[in-house]
Amino acid sequence: MAESSTAVPPEQRQRTARVLAAASQQELAELWHSWPQKPQVEYLRGPESGLVMVQGRVGGTGDRFNLGEATVTRATVTLNAEGEESTGTAYVLGSYPEHAGLAAIFDALLNSSQRKRAMAEIITVLEQRQNTREAARRADARSTVVDFFTVARENDGGEGDQDE
């Protein structure tokens, strides 16, 4: 009934879904553990496993083709706290029912009056960790940038674009 009058805009939800999907199951479990005054959780659906067909594009931007499937787990929950009801849904790659369940719970919190707190204490915290990890991985990758130089004479004819 209280399916939010304050609908979260898509780009906000995309951001939080990204962060919740990228978190580890353990991180989510710890954050949920330390969340005070937990609302009642009711699973409307799942967590249940299934598949998505991953599509690519020929050449990167051409026709779509089916690359292969990937496992995905989804869950939908309803939270009940002092008369306030909110629902949340999560889809997470892999076969981690607990991960999807927790992500759905946090999604429901983000759809409730607790949104502000959930953003500050869950999403921002996770996002910062993910950014740090990402930056470190990126730095490692960037350390392998190579500058080859050609030993043989390069393009005798100058800067022409026709190699023969």
Binding site: M53, V54, E69
Partner: peptide
Amino acid sequence: PRFGATVAL
């Protein structure tokens, strides 16, 4: 079950 196809990568 298959839930659907992803957006192309």
